[in-house]
Amino acid sequence: MTMIVKKTTQLIAGLIFLYGIYVIIHGHLTPGGGFAGGVIIAGSFILLILAFGSDFLRLTREEAGSTLYENLAILIVVFLAVSGLLATGKIFFLNWIPKGTPGELVSAGILPLYNIFVGIEVAASVLTIFLALVIFKEELAE
């Protein structure tokens, strides 16, 4: 890629990443949430890979890493869902943490936790899909 693309990407990739985090953390207050924010974060990584390129070996290593993050995040989501079952008797997906005042950042009980881990999961899985397709293409070229 040209110098212009690289410089612009360097400038905005961090901002996009931060914006994704903002969308995830405010998921229970504003439109958006885990899925939208996760896709934005994955977008920042994809932008970096597209602009700077990457060799085959590093791509496969990154894919292994993102798969691991994805699996861990979804395990934690399932664990959060089961925690309702364990904490207060018999109810799955129960919002058992105190809810706080509506409108505050730290409120709505367990929902922000779901949002954060769903965000990690979506970011990792979208990145994995992108990397897998790129790796297919690289294998093809050889």
Binding site: I129, A132, L133, F136, K137, E139, L140
Partner: peptide
């Protein structure tokens, strides 16, 4: 869609 695309790339190979 991701699944379909992966299958198509494999088919092309």
């Amino acid at each position: 869609t991701a699944m379909l695309m992966a299958t198509i790339i494999r088919l092309y190979r």
